[in-house]
Amino acid sequence: MKRPLAREIAQEYASWFRALADPTRVQIVSLLARQGAPMSVGEIVKAVDVGQSTVSSHLKQLAAVRFVLVERRGTASYYRINDACVDCFPTAADIIMARSVPGLPSR
């Protein structure tokens, strides 16, 4: 009988999917990935056309699962995509769906 993913791995992957379960967070991840450079909250607010407090809340959630990284510059915070985490995301989906992933041992 095949076994499910280890609980710890399943919990981590679930947190990633929860983080992307909101269209505004998907927009923010997409924006930062396409921008390729850190952006301030104000720049992100203008791009996604959502209020500053909402964007800040979404950024906090995305940072908690490491989809975005925060750089402090004086009193300002700049956000950038975490390429390593985003690169792992499609692999996580494949693992959950029991698809083989080249180069990874089966779990």
Rank of each mutant, 00 (worst) to 15 (best):
Q27W: 01
I28C: 02
I28Q: 01
I28A: 01
V29E: 01
V29H: 00
S30K: 07
S30V: 00
S30L: 13
L31M: 09
L32E: 06
L32A: 05
R34E: 01
A37D: 06
A37Q: 10
P38V: 11
P38C: 09
M39E: 03
M39P: 04
S40W: 03
V41I: 15
V41R: 15
V41A: 15
V41G: 15
V41P: 12
G42R: 10
G42L: 11
G42C: 06
E43V: 07
E43M: 09
E43K: 07
I44D: 00
I44Q: 05
I44V: 06
V45T: 05
V45Q: 05
K46A: 07
D49Y: 06
V50Q: 06
G51V: 07
G51R: 07
G51L: 05
Q52C: 06
Q52Y: 12
Q52T: 12
Q52E: 09
S53D: 08
S53W: 11
S53H: 08
T54K: 04
T54V: 05
T54N: 02
V55F: 01
S56D: 07
S57R: 14
S57I: 04
S57W: 12
H58W: 05
L59W: 00
L59E: 02
L59G: 00
L59A: 00
L59K: 02
K60V: 11
K60H: 09
K60S: 12
Q61L: 14
L62D: 04
A63W: 04
A64V: 09
A64L: 13
V65R: 03
V65Q: 03
V65G: 07
R66F: 11
V68P: 10
L69S: 05
L69F: 01
L69G: 01
V70D: 00
V70Y: 02
V70S: 02
E71I: 04
E71L: 03
G74W: 11
G74K: 07
G74Q: 09
A76V: 15
A76K: 15
S77Q: 14
S77W: 03
Y78C: 01
Y78A: 05
Y78P: 02
Y79W: 15
Y79M: 08
Y79D: 07
R80G: 02
I81E: 07
I81F: 08
N82Q: 02
N82W: 06
D83E: 12
D83N: 09
D83S: 10
A84Y: 12
A84L: 14
C85G: 00
C85V: 03
V86F: 11
V86L: 11
D87L: 04
D87E: 03
D87W: 05
C88W: 04
C88L: 06
F89I: 04
P90N: 11
T91V: 14
A92M: 13
A92C: 14
A93H: 14
D94H: 14
I95E: 11
S100V: 15
S100I: 15
